[in-house]
Design a binder for these strands. Structure first.
Lengths: 217, 217
DNA sequence: CCGCATCCGGGGCGATACTG
DNA sequence: CAGTATCGCCCCGGATGCGG
């Protein structure tokens, strides 16, 4: 990218991650951990392959991404975030949090959706109302993916995976799962729309935020 | 901007503020408050005027920016952030904070610099070590601009302006002022490089962070 | 298959000129 | 002062090719 040539933190950040697709690549690396080129491509529908290669090179040269050849038996390269690259997490959470209202009002019809994309907005929206009690785990199944929501230090951590004995399992289309978790949709109404909920309703109530976020406009 | 068409908070945010120059325009509005077109242009060296117009229209249509004609005697338009637009502040602080190491190592020679740009990284770096004591005010003079740093709720708020009786005044080139405040440069060393410090050194010590931030690479 | 490089058409971007 | 108009260029998007 052309540099803004401004001695300003925000401008410097945008010199590194301001290009189109760049922050979404970082998102994939953050949510997936070390990934192969092809897996990144699959998580970024619509990206041109040369762009992905360009961006990865740029991020590597800036010290955000590390590229390493996997162990000899596996003939593949792995891309992952450096510690400094992981430092982008708060900024990405903040951006996702800011955009949460758009996720609720948006007509999801024309948007592609992958389950693990929910991780960022959920981590910035959900809370732990009773941090002193033992941690609970929710498992989200959105068709293509499986996410774990775990209470942690007054908030929640969200990661891909599944648990042996989650306190509750929520299964359904991503927008319904999201709407239920953030308190936009009632449990009964969600169930009427083919959402499955099994387990402890108290675990759900425990992580739901108190009020919906600010609205645009 | 072309939409990513992903049902993901981060992607939705980038659909709105991911275009080139857009976040920098929001930065100017955040730091300056309601601004005229020309003032924005002057705070964004290098931006093409058609781009500024395009971006402002886009942001207005998205509900981030509000445009209003000033009172009849003044024949000018004013642009300002909507409340939702102001909600971008935490995300911009996080991005600026992430990039702070680049501000220290960067060769500032080729970068243009305006004093009020320091406000974002300072607000995310500085702290108030003794929040129980009465608030203090530092005034920064960087040649083109004057900034006020005020302790507030364990951190600091930074805004343009000057004070009648600040606890300390720091005057000099922006990089020196910044280096001194974040603890990168020693006061004696800074003075040797033509930085002027007047007032209470304790006020400076009170807001300096404990450790420098993480390093890239 | 995996990880790109190359090629090409279209549009976003950068700079200048001009106008109500 | 607050933009619009215009134009060249380069970035981006999409397709294909290609070596390991």
């Amino acid at each position: 990218m052309r540099s803004y040539r401004q001695w300003c933190g925000l401008a410097k950040a945008l010199d590194v991650v301001g290009d189109r697709w760049t922050l979404l690549i970082v998102r994939e690396l953050l949510l997936r951990g070390a990934s192969r080129y092809t897996d990144l491509q699959q998580g970024l529908p619509g990206i041109a392959t040369n762009l992905l290669a360009d961006r990865l090179r740029h991020l590597e040269s800036c010290g955000v991404v590390r590229r390493e050849e996997a162990n000899p038996p596996v003939a593949t390269a792995l891309f992952s975030l450096t510690p400094w690259g992981e430092g982008l997490r708060p900024a990405m959470l903040a951006l996702g949090h800011w955009a949460a209202p758009m996720m609720l009002k948006a007509s999801r019809q024309r948007d592609t959706c992958m389950g693990h994309w929910l991780a960022l907005p959920l981590e910035s929206c959900l809370i732990d109302r009773t941090p002193s009690r033992r941690a609970v785990t929710l498992e989200l199944r959105t068709g293509d993916d499986s996410l774990l929501v775990e209470t942690s230090e007054g908030g929640v951590r969200v990661r891909r995976g599944s648990a042996a004995h989650p306190d509750a399992v929520i299964e359904g289309p991503p927008d319904l799962v999201f709407g239920l978790l953030v308190g936009r949709t009632d449990l009964a109404a969600a169930r009427a729309k083919r959402l499955r909920f099994e387990g402890d309703v108290a675990a759900l109530r425990r992580v739901q935020p108190r009020a919906p976020g600010a609205r645009p406009g």
